[in-house]
């Protein structure tokens, strides 16, 4: 069973603004029956560009219904340019958070809002112009890139949680990983090691990579304090190292080992590595 906040439960069981606005001048329809969730948002926008009424119809789970209800509450009274700034994170925050596997419900809310505003303005949405990456759920590369940037996504799994891409047959996983790589390395977001599916590495590959990281990243830092480190052995995920120089008499050497060396190796080589001191 999902752990929904009280706010999600309230908005699900007693949703606000269910239905369709009479003579709407902004309508956004996203999702489909096949995808398992869909939202039709209708807006009434007055001549001062203020949203005076918002209603929704949603097919979907509790968090999809709650996100829709929350969205209509949030936008009513806002000007169009204020509403445009609403992100999916804002919708999730309004509900006191959503389970991570359900974040795509808040994304659907934001997409419907964008579609409704585009409809009001009579313009095309750029998202639809992208290239479809995930055929199961019809998700384009532009949508994926946007989600990576806006929600600071770091793995294919997170992309799936937010956009559903990759959640069906899984054939697009490699392509998603490429997009993730490209988007992250563009520098638009803080580059960190990409945590995807657990990598498989042979011991030899591990040793080579660990040596490389030790030389390039770790040793220079330890040497500054008069210490040093040597790789002794790699057995599965266990990395045996030997501390040298000032490290041997340093009271904090265990902290250095776990908090710095292990963290660094996990980040740059393999997330499952365990660093131990060879006795």
């Amino acid at each position: 069973m999902w752990e929904y906040t009280d706010k999600v439960q309230q908005h699900f069981l007693h949703p606000h603004n269910v239905g369709e606005v009479e003579k709407p001048n902004g309508t956004g329809e996203v999702g489909s029956l096949a995808c398992g969730d869909a939202l039709k948002l209708t807006l009434k926008i007055d001549k001062d560009e203020r949203i005076v009424d918002a209603k929704f119809k949603t097919f979907g789970c509790a968090s999809a219904i709650a996100s829709s209800s929350a969205l209509t509450m949030m936008v009513t009274g806002m000007t169009v340019s204020e509403a445009e700034k609403i992100t999916n994170e804002d919708i999730a925050d309004y509900l006191g958070g959503l389970p991570k596997e359900k974040m795509h419900c808040s994304v659907m809310g934001r997409e419907a809002l964008e579609a409704a505003i585009a409809d009001y303005r009579g313009v095309m949405l750029p998202m639809a112009e992208g290239e479809v990456v995930c055929e199961c759920f019809g998700v384009t590369d532009l949508e994926v890139i946007r989600a990576i940037r806006e929600s600071n996504l770091r793995s294919v799994e997170e992309i799936t949680n937010f956009t559903k891409a990759g959640g069906g047959c899984g054939k697009c996983e490699d392509r998603l990983r490429e997009i993730l790589h490209a988007t992250v390395s563009e520098g638009t977001v803080t580059p960190v090691q990409i945590v995807g599916h657990p990598k498989r590495m042979t011991t030899l590959q591990k040793i080579k990579k660990i040596e490389e990281v030790l030389e390039r990243e770790i040793k220079p830092v330890l040497r500054k304090d008069g210490g040093d480190i040597e790789l002794v052995d790699v057995d599965g995920d266990f990395v045996m190292v030997s501390l040298r120089g000032a490290c041997t008499s340093c009271a904090k050497s265990q902290t250095t080992l776990k908090e710095y060396v292990e963290k660094k190796l996990r980040e740059l080589v393999l997330e499952t590595l365990i660093v131990e001191e060879a006795k």
């Binding site: 999902w2 699900f12 069981l13 029956l33 398992g36 969730d37 097919f59 979907g60 789970c61 509790a62 999809a64 219904i65």
Partner: peptide, 14 residues
Amino acid sequence: EFVEGEAILLHMNI
């Protein structure tokens, strides 16, 4: 048809 299972189950849960 036209409704989603989780939403149904959570209403039944009440």
